[in-house]
Amino acid sequence: MDELNYQWGHGIFKRLAANMEIVIKGQKECIRYILAGLASSGHILLEDNPGTGKTTLAKALAKSIDVDFKRIQFTPDLLPSDILGVSIFDPSQKLFKFHNGPVFTNILLADEINRASPRTQSALLESMAEGQVSIDGTILNLEKMFFVIATQNPVESSGTYPLPEAQMDRFAMQLKLGYVAREQEVAILSEQQEKHPIHTLSPCVTLKEILDLRFMVNQVFIAKELKLYMVDIVNKTREQIGISLGASPRATIALMKTAQALAVFDNQSFITSDHIQEIAVSVIAHRLVLDPQSSFSGVTPKSVVEDILRSIPVPV
């Protein structure tokens, strides 16, 4: 694929980012990563305090793409059938008829995912990893483009069920929004004085364009030493002291794919070590399970990954 094509991918990114920035102020980096997740066929977990704009960000993305969008508000009494769908007996035809659940869509916003019971959370597992669900012994395929944005409150909040490790591993990235700067919060106030700008948002990218972008991302070249570098980073999480569960090979794959997406966004046909370093914390940190001892001593998964990055010589 020649340079010109990457120019096109770069253009799609710019268009989408600009559209979302109309609503989401001061989160350029986060938008870049969310789009990287989208372009690399991953799923995104947004974790932050209530009111920081997680849902708005997800909705802004859904509205910017001309695709089907559904939202599930997770609650403690939500059942797996509320996500996947349910077969109901039709008395007129004397048959069980399957009613599609909200999972049959292109973009799924799983809001406050850690408020539901682990059983319900796990209902998403198969669908996220394999793009299919099995109900009543039959396998149903999901849409070709199936993208989950889940939001959750910090695990320490009351009334939450922390996501199991297997579920966490399904997410390509976990992102934190954080609070915006003073000036930007003022800008948010001014814009929402009359009405929410999200209502004015219109789609700027089609489903086909997203699928093309995903194809393009897969073509991005990765030099051998960079592959080694990524493997070294993930490997080190498995050896590092203070970690009871390191990152999986799925993490390495996610790291590669998101780095590829970033390369496209930067209008490059190859990834560099900068891309890997940029995304490593978001891709790896949420998959790590720390020893109780190290958590108590103030070590966070993020600091662990940062330490690892600082301990491995980078190919330049």
């Binding site: 070249f221 030099a223 490059q268 046909s269 560099t272």
Partner: peptide, 9 residues
């Protein structure tokens, strides 16, 4: 330099 070192071509 990056293109020289890391790109396919």
């Amino acid at each position: 330099h990056n293109r020289y070192c890391f790109s396919s071509s």
